[in-house]
Computed example of a mutant assay.
Amino acid sequence: TTTILSSFVEQVGGERVTVISIVPPGVCPAHYDITPSDVYAVSRASLILYSGFEPWLDNLIKTSGNVNVTKVKIGGPWHPYTAALTYVRRVRDALSNVLPEYSDIFEDNARMVCEEINATAQEIMNNATRLGVSDVKVVCMLWQKGFVEWMGFQIVATYLPPERMSLSDVMTLTNTAEKEGVALVIDNLPSGYSLGAKLAADIGAQHVILTNFPGAIPGTETYAKMIKYNAKQLFDAVKRYQLIQGEIRELNESLKAANLYVKILAATTVIFLVTTVVEAILLYRRRI
């Protein structure tokens, strides 16, 4: 149904399978409207993998008239990466059940996919540790919480899709973010990003847009590439924030130094004037 599933199927199944993803990667699956091409695709399918948040799926299968299709729920979150490894194994098992003659190939492919994900996750964690993200406070869209939390960021608040946020919710979120000194506001691309953009602008934080579906952004065609991309967006935002904060600190120090200089100059001027007046008085008295 989605590219998080189709990307794993393509990697594990290889040339043994033909894969069609129904929902485009930048679209929220819960709000997707099925098309005639989707009906046709399902009518010819042997296997349908789904996550469980596709309210239109049963109607789509019924409309297609395909009574022989095998329907397998993979389900559950795919962040952090350990959950994605479970996805890979479930995809492997689903393909092996439908095409048992290729089960050894699916096993080997799944192992390589898991190795790639593990290596990418380790690289991300090494970079996160070096950058000190555990000291960085963020506000995060709920669908990205698992990934952001795994990386070690301090999540002070999460928020729902904009259509499910009341004005009171937004005000509470803004107040919390300001009070905590949040550095990043992290959005989820398929859920929309206008709310996060305004919040970041209001509190002076960096706005970051992540994707949780492979292929939504060029260069994110697999899960490993997607989390690497997402991590880079977060790392770059942290560096920008730290740079800006450093510049602000330098500016404040310069202002403090300038204020001190002005005070010293003023004090020196006063002393000079007092001294001049005193000398003038003394000189006047001597003449008398």
Rank of each mutant, 00 (worst) to 15 (best):
T3I: 02
T3Y: 10
I4L: 12
V9P: 05
G14V: 02
S21M: 08
I22K: 06
V23K: 02
Y40C: 05
R44V: 03
A45F: 01
L49Y: 05
S51N: 15
S51F: 08
G52S: 08
G52H: 08
F53M: 06
F53E: 03
D58M: 12
I61M: 02
K62R: 14
S64R: 04
S64D: 10
T70V: 11
I74E: 00
G75H: 06
R92I: 03
D93F: 14
L95R: 01
L95W: 03
N97S: 08
E101Y: 10
E101V: 08
Y102K: 09
Y102F: 15
S103C: 07
M112N: 12
V113E: 11
I117V: 15
T120G: 01
A121R: 00
N126M: 14
N127I: 00
V139W: 01
K145F: 15
W150G: 01
M151E: 01
M151K: 01
G152L: 04
F153N: 12
A157E: 13
R164T: 10
S168D: 11
V170Q: 14
M171V: 11
M171K: 13
M171S: 14
L173Y: 09
A177T: 09
E178Q: 13
K179Q: 13
K179F: 14
G181E: 11
L184E: 00
V185Y: 04
I186L: 05
L195C: 04
G196C: 09
A201R: 11
D202W: 05
D202F: 04
A205E: 10
H207A: 12
N212W: 02
N212S: 11
N212A: 07
T220H: 03
E221D: 15
I227P: 00
Y229R: 06
A231S: 15
K232V: 05
L243N: 09
L243D: 10
E250A: 14
L251I: 06
N252P: 04
S254V: 04
L255D: 04
V262I: 15
K263H: 10
K263G: 05
V270Q: 03
L273D: 02
L273T: 09
T275W: 08
V278N: 00
E279Y: 08
L282I: 13
Y284S: 12
I288A: 13
